[in-house]
Design a protein around this nucleic acid. Sequence first.
DNA 1: AATGCAATTGCAAATCGTTTGCAAAAAGAA
DNA 2: TTCTTTTTGCAAACGATTTGCAATTGCATT
Lengths: 145, 145
Amino acid sequence: MNQRPPHKPDYERELRRAGIRITRPRRIILDILTGTEDHPDAMEIFQRANAVDKSISLSTVYRTMKLLEGMGAIHRHAFEGGPARFEQASGDHHDHLIDLDTGDVIEFHSDRIEALQDEIARELGYEIVHHRLELYGRRKRKRRA
Amino acid sequence: MNQRPPHKPDYERELRRAGIRITRPRRIILDILTGTEDHPDAMEIFQRANAVDKSISLSTVYRTMKLLEGMGAIHRHAFEGGPARFEQASGDHHDHLIDLDTGDVIEFHSDRIEALQDEIARELGYEIVHHRLELYGRRKRKRRA
DNA sequence: AATGCAATTGCAAATCGTTTGCAAAAAGAA
DNA sequence: TTCTTTTTGCAAACGATTTGCAATTGCATT
């Protein structure tokens, strides 16, 4: 279990290398993604992008998210009962704890859990391609002194 | 990690006790749920119900699923990229391994993983209300002799 | 068995998040 | 600048699920 290391890779370079055009909407969306620590959904990204350039459409946000997801630059998470939320893929792998009261997302990682998952899959005759581990909880109230 | 024990509780009794009417559609849907080991989605339940009584509507399936979920009689799972799938809640708690090629769902349980989850949440100052652990994988090809 | 009323239904229309067709606009190579 | 291709915005389509409403049903009461 550990904290996320900040990281800001150069996606424009990667996109160019893949023969994908760097457009104004894409640059703006990319800046938003690399500049945030949270897990915004498409609508939030749309609004932040719109604050920079009124003409960017929601479809373009969705299209760009799909593009970046395909490149492995971002991860898409479908947490319970809400729109998909995105985060930059640069950090190392982690799972999520969702605060049921605030919607906050806390990242964590456990090598031991990952190892157990592999073991279980192996025993069942499977190879894990990916997994989803989400804890939904509420903040423990501070124990009175 | 263990197998699921079969179980067939009497939901009609429970429903009556909760002041909820036993209608023909509900009885049929309930029979389908208690009579299957798999994880059908609403459309599948609708079709199976329709085979018994042509007049049952998809809305009623959805309404009944919500009702039963609220009573704790069934669990709803939103696996990746598909409609919600349901299963009767009677067995003991388990997580799911989804076969990416066939869509099959294999149930498993690990006390050690559950314990680790609690530990992680506790260290982060949270109490887990529920969690979601899904492994997505493919069948390992049999190792040649 | 007939009555009455609230709960439940089927249907169609509405909803939400997301995707898509299309003609117009912009990127990047020549 | 011109050309070709990709990308865009818009509106309409989409799939899963929910909802409003009038008609039907369950069932407790006579």
